[in-house]
Design a protein around this nucleic acid. Structure first.
Lengths: 209, 209
DNA sequence: CGTACTTTTGAATCGCATCAAATCTGGTGG
DNA sequence: CCACCAGATTTGATGCGATTCAAAAGTACG
């Protein structure tokens, strides 16, 4: 079995993912918990939008296949909403999939929209969420505009890490995809940066120097 | 003189930029019109956020300078809001500049936030705006993830144009920057695509075949 | 203990960036 | 109207860096 619906325990959900705490009571009653293994599709391009996804733990991604068959990562959500823009769409414009065992809350779109209308706090939180996503995407665009692998790596550590230190929450191979690089280029550049003393690599901990 | 404040004529403003029509009456009274020449800075990184910018006609951009001195285009607004995410920030994270003679409405942030709280229609329009921006940015990320110049060009025409036909509203040189390419690479690739019969180039009109 | 996947290294190739320079364009002022 | 200038467009040559293909070694997991 690839996924399962389990009973909801709000205090622990909120502890795992604070954003869940912003969901109004009325909407909570319509939420369903979804526990999925790795590589479980949540929706596919063209599917009608039925619910909003909140990643509680684990990771879910929006992906699209390029014409040459390579996979482009459009969003990587580790805790927080997935596919925020789908709230305004009829059907999905890309695929969504889990990359590891993941717990998700699903919220019916109609009830979600109603809750946004009625609850000023929830609404404000949602607007912040959208804004944060815009900033994140701009950073990603800026990064992809850099044309050397080393620059993209440094940029990622600076913008996603804290004080020049980043703990990597994914395989290097999939990080390479997120950086728009081949995994070989990433491995080689990491090594070179380390040997040049620009970067300190220690397992999943990366630090610029 | 680089810029001027002029009296407001709402009907014509709304005709030029429909988004202006969504602004509630109360907020309109606080709006100021700004007419700027090309290459006029609207704000700089670090400046405190005092107002929201709505581009009525012309073009304004968010830009940031990369460490190597090259200019990265974070947003290009031709009609519509600029720097939506600034509404939630204290100070700007990038520079804004006009690229041609441009008419802008400026709306004080405090009044803007208040209007969002009070007016459900305006609020809903603003959320749509944020969502649209997210989709646009995802498309841009997807495009920058493509590693051939031809693929980026095709992707741009498909996603920004209509039915495979695009009218370019900027110089090719600055389009190149938006595509994350050197202008030489863009010129050469356009020519090659045309000679290969993949693309039809006619002045500012580009069509995929 | 086998299988799938990631990590790592090597070698060859290709496309883009870069530097250079000529031409073309639109706009300004004499 | 013409000279002039700044910027855009175009072409050429060169080098680097990333992609690609290949293959080996390491690792996690059932």
């Amino acid at each position: 079995m690839q996924s399962a619906i389990e009973p909801l325990d709000w205090p622990s959900l909120i502890e795992a993912q604070p954003a869940a705490g912003l969901i109004p009571i009325g909407l909570r009653q319509q939420a369903k918990r979804l526990d999925a293994q790795a590589r479980v599709p949540l929706f596919r391009i063209g599917d009608p939008v039925r619910c909003v996804y909140l990643v509680v733990s684990g990771e879910a991604r929006l992906i699209r296949l390029a014409r040459n068959g390579s996979e482009v990562i459009l969003q990587r959500s580790r805790g927080g909403f997935l596919a925020e823009a789908s709230l305004e769409a009829r059907s999905y414009h890309c695929d969504a999939i889990t990359t590891e065992p993941t717990t998700i809350l699903t919220l019916p779109v109609a009830a979600f929209r109603a809750a946004l209308e009625e609850d000023p706090i929830f609404r404000s939180a949602w607007q912040s969420q959208l804004t944060k996503e815009i900033r994140k995407l701009r950073a990603q665009c800026e990064r992809l505009s850099l044309n050397s692998a080393a620059d993209r790596i440094s940029h990622y550590i600076e913008s996603e890490g804290a004080d020049g230190i980043l703990t990597l929450h994914q395989s290097r191979k999939s990080w390479a995809a997120e950086l728009g690089l081949s995994h070989e280029a990433l491995y080689r550049t990491l090594r070179r940066m380390q040997s040049e003393g620009v970067l300190d690599v220690d397992g999943v901990r990366l630090a610029t120097k």
